[in-house]
């Protein structure tokens, strides 16, 4: 334990710098994945053909092992943090896209009809009806994505992205247990924090009236979870 603290405190190891690198890659990837995933889902939701393509492509992408994907993009994107970020964004999109799409499609048309009937504007329908119903489902997708991105970002160290993964791989190469743990423990803790915090956020976003079903729909979406770093 002392060795671990010494490792972290040693300026030579630049723990702070690696943490920032790691967190930045994760944060940027998650943000971009959310924006792209949600926009794509909204864009394709009106066209049956486009949504069929998007849903199945997402499903296919999730069936491909993360590690395979990560190395497969290396020849195209090269080595370092920016290409790794691109790979992470692409991996992060499917759960968000699928959940947003499911959420939009899952709204009872009668609900929208009723809202129109009582004279709500398009904006009011979006903010008062659709958003509260969809948000928890989107949040479930973001949760899956975020946990996956955090996990995969570690693996991205093999393509030279740096971060905690670098400690782990360096540790493997030099048989340095301290280095391994210095990388592995923060990653594990970070993943658990995101999982628990996002789970809490998801519940908080769920309108009380539909709380039970929302939990079930999250279960359904999670069943499709395949990708795992």
């Amino acid at each position: 334990m002392n060795a671990l603290l010494d490792f972290i405190a040693d300026p030579h190891n630049n723990f702070m710098g690696q943490s920032i690198t790691y967190l930045r890659i994760c944060a940027i990837s998650i943000m971009l994945a959310i924006v792209i995933g949600v926009v794509l889902a909204v864009a394709v939701s009106r066209s049956p053909v486009l949504s069929f393509i998007a849903v199945n492509l997402s499903g296919l992408l999730r069936a491909i092992p993360v590690i395979a994907f990560l190395v497969a993009v290396v020849p195209f994107l090269g080595i370092g943090a920016p290409p790794a970020t691109v790979a992470l964004v692409i991996l992060g999109i499917p759960p968000i896209l699928l959940n947003t799409y499911t959420g939009i499609r899952g709204i009872d048309p009668a609900t929208i009809d009723a809202a129109k009937g009582m004279g709500m504007t398009y904006w009011q329908i979006l903010t008062r009806i659709q958003a509260p119903l969809i948000l928890p489902i989107v949040a479930a997708g973001v949760r899956t994505s975020a946990v996956q991105i955090v996990a995969t970002a570690t693996l991205a160290a093999i393509t030279g992205a740096g971060g905690y993964g670098a400690y782990i791989f360096d540790g493997f190469n030099t048989f340095n247990k301290t280095a391994i743990l210095a990388g592995a423990i923060p990653v594990a803790v970070l993943a658990l924090i995101i999982e628990v915090a996002m789970g809490w956020l998801e519940r908080a976003l769920t309108p009380i009236g539909i709380r039970r079903e929302a939990v079930q729909s999250q279960m359904v979406v999670k069943q499709g979870e395949v990708a795992k770093a």
Binding site: L155, I180, A184
Partner: peptide, 18 residues
């Protein structure tokens, strides 16, 4: 099971190696 699933594989293998 969900929390265990959340721990990244690389981190888990790394910890187990020690």
């Amino acid at each position: 099971a969900d929390l265990l699933y959340t721990v990244p594989a690389l981190a888990l293998i790394a910890i187990l190696i020690t």
